[in-house]
């Protein structure tokens, strides 16, 4: 969607976006030649449709975050569905992942979290089988 100032035959440029909080959106566009300003107002359904596409009218001011739409728009989600590592969450080596996969499914998530937190607390960026062994010894996690 674009706005054209017909008198000037110039495409109007985005000026400002406002989200009043009632599900609607207002976006102002200005003619670069005559200065005339028009506002585009979208109803809640139209606003939601644009948001659902994962785009922002007026352009993005910050890069899209991982699963931004799912994390922001899914209702009835688990409160602890995501664990934000703030960019410091350790990765897992392939052999550590294989070992983790042998942990019974119903406790695997908890076990993974324990090892991850152990590594993060110690500034370890990659969980390896050696890190898992060390954590088991230090934390008394025999059998995990």
């Amino acid at each position: 969607m674009k706005f054209l100032c017909v008198d000037c035959d110039r495409q109007m440029t985005f000026e400002e976006r406002q989200l009043p909080g009632d599900g609607t959106l207002a976006a102002a566009f200005r003619c670069p030649q005559c200065g005339r300003v028009v506002a585009m107002l979208t109803n809640p359904m139209e606003t939601q449709l644009v948001a659902s596409l994962g785009v922002q009218i007026g352009g993005r001011t910050i890069p899209a975050q991982p699963m931004e739409m799912v994390r922001g728009m899914v209702a009835g989600g688990k409160e602890d569905a995501f664990e934000d590592g703030g960019g410091h969450f350790p990765t897992w080596s392939d052999d550590a992942q294989e070992r983790l996969a042998r942990v019974p499914g119903f406790v695997r998530g908890m076990v993974k979290r324990i090892y991850s937190e152990y590594a993060r607390d110690r500034g370890i960026t990659v969980v390896t089988t050696a890190v898992m062994d060390a954590a088991r010894t230090e934390l008394g996690l025999e059998g995990m």
């Binding site: 991982p66 569905a81 995501f82 664990e83 590592g85 294989e98 996969a101 908890m110």
Partner: peptide, 24 residues
Amino acid sequence: LEARDGPLAVREDGIEPAVGADGV
């Protein structure tokens, strides 16, 4: 695939998938 439990880790570059049975 026995991968229901535990949160998905949010990393700077994306969401880390869960590791299920046999490492899937």
